[in-house]
Design a protein around this nucleic acid. Structure first.
Lengths: 205, 205
DNA sequence: ACATATACGGAACAATGTTCCGTTTTTCAA
DNA sequence: TTGAAAAACGGAACATTGTTCCGTATATGT
């Protein structure tokens, strides 16, 4: 092998080829198809189904997403971002306690829509280990700011980690599919009440 | 187990052949092997692995448990029973608040040992729908009595459904594998605090 | 000991994730 | 515009795992 230096292609002055148009098109189509299929059949839907829906071959799916889990992760990140962005907006529009409650509901809906993902998440497959990280890196700051604001206002106890709350709701939303939307709400409210337990004007500094 | 009595078959004078000894032996071996394998590799372990460990052929597994899920369910029930039986014992040995806390810990451990089952439970597979029923029929009364006693003692709010608490812990135990045993405990404590929120001498009636 | 019901074992089948590679398309530059 | 190379495509083929089938072996009752 004498082509060890990968950069010695003729006429390549650090100028790379553009991403091929069809590749980009297929990537988008896959992402959109996957989102739709996941929403309909859950994240356990066969890869072939997504490939068909996107109008591409299986090979193409695996070119863009070497593993099935990569596709799931990609779809997931988009929605995480959308949810995180909701926090500042709510904080600006409501008082701290209300903003916190509303964002928790928003988050609950987001999680509830991802049927089957919670299952995959806890299946032990190491591929999904990056997901909690992404979760936390994007959602924790969002929630933490709401939590801090609420604590400063004295409506919840201080010092409770956002990550724990996030986890709890994520995991509590799964059974809400079976028990109706009420269950998730009750659970979130219970957690929030737990937070309020050590707070209040009398508990403040 | 609860085979319907009086199966009328031609030439059957109500005198059935005994269950064959080897069949019973293999059934036991399968149950034991499955319990061990599930504990080691989670409930997603291949059926063949269990068959090997039990020293039987695949056909034998499917003779006793027509579906993979039937095996999981059978193993599961045994442990549910054991956990339910712990409640009266704890109630007799401790005050209501303590008994409740302890049982929740016991329950947490039980759930934590079933890695992957929570995932299967929420996978949408209808085969597992009987599991929550069994859960509830056996565990709800156990917890409810502890809950009622604690409420009567004024340490938790009254009227909270045992089933919700059970669910919450079951589902919160899964991530505890990844986040260490502390997480599960913190979550259980948070829920219990949520329960205490509306209780106490001042909140009675 | 024999006949029969019962159970056993594992090959074969089906579904699904993943890999491989010959073919097609796009891009770049002469 | 055109040709060659890089990049991407498609889908057959492979691997793993749940499940079915059926010929063979064994326990039971007479």
């Amino acid at each position: 092998m004498d082509d060890t230096a990968g950069e010695i292609r003729p006429g390549n002055d650090g100028k790379r080829r553009r991403v091929r148009a069809d590749a980009q098109r297929n990537l988008d189509a896959l992402l959109r198809a996957a989102m739709a299929v996941f929403a309909t059949s859950g994240v356990d839907a066969p890869v072939r189904e997504i490939a068909d829906k996107a109008g591409v071959g299986i090979g193409t799916v695996y070119r863009h997403f070497p593993q099935r889990s990569d596709l799931i992760i990609a779809v997931f990140r988009q929605e995480v971002d959308a949810c995180a962005d909701a926090a500042p907006a709510l904080a600006a529009a409501h008082d701290p306690g209300e903003a916190l409650s509303r964002w928790m509901r928003r988050y609950l809906e987001f999680i509830a829509a991802k049927r089957g993902l919670g299952a995959a998440l806890h299946s032990g497959d190491p591929a999904y280990e990056v997901l909690p990280d992404y979760f936390q890196k994007h959602l924790v700051p969002a929630l933490q700011s709401l939590l801090d604001a609420a604590a400063a206002a004295g409506v919840v106890r201080a010092g409770f980690a956002a990550v724990d709350l996030l986890r709890a709701v994520a995991v509590l939303a799964a059974p809400s599919q079976e028990l109706g939307p009420e269950h998730g709400r009750r659970m979130v409210d219970l957690l929030l009440d737990g937070l309020r337990y050590g707070a209040g004007p009398s508990a403040g500094a």
